[in-house]
Design a protein around this nucleic acid. Structure first.
Lengths: 195, 195
DNA sequence: GATGTTTACTTAACACTGTTAACCCATGTC
DNA sequence: GACATGGGTTAACAGTGTTAAGTAAACATC
């Protein structure tokens, strides 16, 4: 296996184990059986290494969502399944999920947009489902892309509150998430389809 | 003015100016005309200094929200106003907003819960509005506290996506936010009041 | 008024961090 | 054999959070 790949794997392990604060170039290098400076042979700097991790996490999330896709289901059901899969991924891989939102595009030099291409794929996926909902007259949405981003943002908010332990201890996670997903999807539907 | 207060002010200035990454104990100290070690006379460590900043930001946000409160308005309208005020605060004070969600309670030693008390105040505020909506039969919500957290989480998600520049450049901020708030509040209402 | 005590701060240092420049050495090429 | 090159190293710089020890001025007590 290439050292580059080894570095990425080791970084992920350290990230999952000790959290973000514990992730240093020297520790990564040591665990990979190599010197810190060697990392710079494969990554311009720490940010670019993190970006590679982000990239992988995004790809994995994308894969999970695509897997959750069920073309035979109706648009609403598909949105529900996507949302559930999204939340599940986040809960199963908290650190991996977090790094997606940790590094921000604006701080990335040069190639931010291209690398975040996979995210756009997801948006377009959601938008296309909404669009087909429009066509089947199950939904009536002005701008599917805006709605896709809105759903996504809301989901992220809900997940983020849970992951960062900001939920009141008296409120159990699962019911909260179920309630939230319900609200996001159905609120979204009914709003634009006046009863 | 006390050095403790001076440190907090200077820290905020540096935070607003150079962002989170630029904030170091030595830089804070220098700007305050003092040595780095002096900070430790007033704060146990950097985390506790950050916590103090978080605290201040939360208080400010709480004040803004309480200001936006209009008891004469109906429950739904009140929720709309709160949401708008929340988003506005976040857009006006991005860095200050971010530090609220940057430091996480679990990583804080000892007194996390008490210090985050102000946040709970907000939740209870929202919950009480929802409750009065229930009583006026404008809303029909099972658990106002859960719904309060859900609204809050969704708002945070939407704001966070905008602040972290993750919104597609083709989508203008303001319409997106307006759309999102609309969806959060109305979706929330209609879901529990079957037409 | 000399003595001790407290308060508010500094100096020096430790163990880290990301990052760069210079070097080394085995391999393949002419 | 001379030479370049890929894949690593060592040494170092500047900066980080943090701690232990020291200092100097203000205050308290006899």
């Amino acid at each position: 296996m290439s050292l580059r790949q080894e570095i990425i794997i080791v970084s992920k392990e350290l990230l999952l184990k000790g959290g973000f604060a514990q992730l240093s170039m020297r520790k990564i290098a040591k665990k990979a059986g190599v010197t810190a400076t060697s990392i710079y042979l494969y990554f311009k700097n720490k940010d670019e290494l993190l970006l590679a991790l982000v990239e992988e996490s995004i790809e994995k999330l994308t894969a999970v969502l695509k897997d959750a896709l069920d073309p035979s289901a109706g648009p609403v059901e598909q949105l529900e399944k996507l949302a559930a899969a999204y939340v599940q991924y986040a809960l199963d891989n908290p650190q991996e999920y977090e790094i997606i939102y940790m590094v921000r595009p604006e701080e990335m030099p040069k190639y931010p947009r291209e690398k975040f291409q996979h995210v756009r794929e997801i948006y377009e996926l959601i938008a296309s489902i909404i669009q087909s909902g429009n066509e089947q007259h199950v939904l009536d949405v002005d701008d599917p892309m805006i709605s896709a981003y809105t759903i996504w943002a809301q989901l992220h908010g809900v997940v983020s509150v849970v992951l960062s332990r900001r939920l009141d201890t008296r409120i159990p996670k699962q019911p909260f998430l179920k309630h939230a997903i319900d609200q996001i999807i159905h609120g979204f539907i009914i709003q634009r389809t006046p009863a």
